[in-house]
């Protein structure tokens, strides 16, 4: 059952076009959203969060269209990115204090649990955190209000191999607890480690959308690994 559904989402910029993007996220699964830089990953994610105005198509969560049910849906989802940190010079506890007031479902015990699990210090400011810790801080906010769906924009980008491994382990841990995760990346080993499904985007178009096994079976040639498959498909798309 798909808990998130994108149907024919389009967005045109002067130099880029997202063309009828359609895919779904299965409940309790991890979906890797892969594509090279500028392929349309962030634009797609922004359309999933109503940060941009799409030209056509629809995004729905839990069977509800996003545009008409924005407030209710945002109570049940979380977003994190490896590139933005909110209020870099405010203490974590100050940001948390304000954020929790927006979520009736905020669970203080979950917050304390993940704070300890992520080894985050409430008295630190985001500017004092490493890139990996910033992602964890964003995840902490999402998980503390019991997000059922996590949308993560390049969460592993810029992380050292150890931090990346730690984060991917965390995704698997959250999946076991029924959380649906979609993360964008251009690092194929991230997908090999934890993705159940793969959505591959190139030049604003979805080129593949299936389980990881089907992807390897359907698109792989002569025992290619994921990286080799993507490189070949990307070259073919550019011809």
């Amino acid at each position: 059952m798909n808990i998130v559904e994108l149907t024919d989402v389009c967005k045109t910029y002067p130099s880029f076009r997202l063309e009828k993007v359609s895919f779904g996220l299965e409940k309790g699964k991890i979906t890797g959203f892969i594509g090279r830089n500028g392929a349309g990953k962030t634009t797609t994610i922004k359309s999933m969060l109503n940060l941009i105005h799409t030209d056509c198509g629809q995004v729905s969560y839990f069977g509800l269209p996003l545009t008409e049910n924005e407030e209710e849906i945002k109570q049940r989802i979380g977003y994190s990115t490896g590139t933005i940190s909110w209020y870099p010079r405010k203490k974590i506890k100050e940001i948390v204090e304000v954020t929790r007031s927006f979520y009736p479902s905020w669970d203080e015990s979950s917050y304390r649990k993940y704070l300890e699990l992520f080894s985050l210090d409430e008295n630190k400011k985001p500017i004092e955190l490493s890139e990996g810790m910033k992602v964890k801080f964003n995840l902490l906010l999402s998980l503390s209000h019991s997000s059922e769906v996590l949308i993560l924009d390049e969460p592993t980008s810029g992380l050292d191999p150890f931090s990346r491994d730690e984060l991917l382990q965390l995704f698997l841990f959250l999946k076991e607890r029924g959380v649906t995760i979609m993360f964008s990346t251009h690092i194929t080993t991230d997908l090999e480690r934890c993705a159940d499904s793969i959505v591959y985007i190139s030049k604003g178009r979805i080129r593949a959308n299936c389980s990881k096994e089907d992807f390897i079976n359907n698109y792989g040639k002569n025992g290619e690994n994921l990286e080799q498959i993507f490189l070949r498909m990307e070259r073919e798309a550019n011809v």
């Binding site: 969060l49 109503n50 940060l51 924005e70 407030e71 977003y79 933005i84 909110w86 927006f102």
Partner: peptide, 15 residues
Amino acid sequence: EAGDIIYSVLLPIAK
């Protein structure tokens, strides 16, 4: 500079 607009839009509120 603090990303306040994006933070606010991601909160469970209407734009």
